[in-house]
Amino acid sequence: MKIDTNSLVSITEANQNFSRVAHLVDENGAAVILKNNTPRYIVIQFSEYQAAQTARDDDVSTISQRILSKHLSAFEELAK
């Protein structure tokens, strides 16, 4: 993931001025909150989070179908 240096905010500043964090998210799509000068948290729009969750669920479904079809005979034997 590429991090825009304009999106970096210290945890102290985020705590004192969260509206700035929200403004950065609106402008850049994300804000990275630093704790001890290390990226620790990311703030994104809720719609982006939902899209990521949906993609993750789709990936799990696809992978599980592939595993089931590949090892169907073993699963049928175990089901007996």
Rank of each mutant, 00 (worst) to 15 (best):
K35P: 08
A52F: 03
R66L: 13
Y41L: 10
S10R: 04
D59C: 05
V43P: 00
L68N: 09
T5C: 04
L72T: 07
V43E: 01
V9T: 02
V32H: 07
K80C: 13
R20P: 04
V32T: 10
T62P: 03
I42F: 03
V32N: 05
D57P: 03
T62I: 13
Q53W: 09
S64P: 12
S73W: 12
Q45M: 07
A74W: 15
S64N: 13
D57R: 06
K80D: 12
H71K: 08
A22R: 03
F75V: 14
I33S: 09
I42W: 05
I44G: 00
S47F: 05
G29E: 06
A74I: 15
V9E: 00
A31M: 10
T12H: 13
E48D: 15
T38V: 09
S73F: 07
V25W: 12
E27Y: 05
A79T: 09
E48G: 07
T12G: 05
N6I: 02
L24V: 07
N28M: 10
A30I: 11
S19K: 12
R66S: 06
D57W: 10
T12M: 11
T5N: 09
N36T: 02
V21N: 03
R20N: 14
N28H: 13
K80R: 14
R56Y: 01
Q16A: 05
N15G: 15
A55S: 01
Y49E: 00
V9N: 02
R40S: 14
T5P: 07
D59K: 05
E77M: 14
V60A: 08
S73C: 13
V21S: 06
R40M: 11
G29R: 05
G29A: 02
V9H: 00
R56D: 00
F75T: 12
L72Y: 11
N17C: 11
Q50V: 07
Q16D: 08
Q16M: 04
N28A: 14
N17M: 06
M1G: 01
L34E: 10
F46N: 09
T54S: 07
T54H: 11
A55G: 00
Q16F: 03
T62E: 12
N15L: 13
F18P: 04
G29V: 04
V43G: 04
S64E: 13
Y49K: 02
V60W: 03
N28G: 08
K35R: 14
A14Y: 01
S64A: 08
I63W: 03
L78G: 11
H23L: 11
I11P: 03
S61H: 14
R66T: 07
E13N: 03
I33Q: 14
I67F: 00
E76N: 08
V60N: 06
R20S: 13
D58Y: 04
E77N: 14
R20V: 07
A31T: 11
N28K: 15
E77S: 15
N37S: 00
V60D: 02
G29C: 07
N17K: 10
D26R: 09
L34R: 08
T38N: 11
K80F: 10
T54R: 04
Q53D: 11
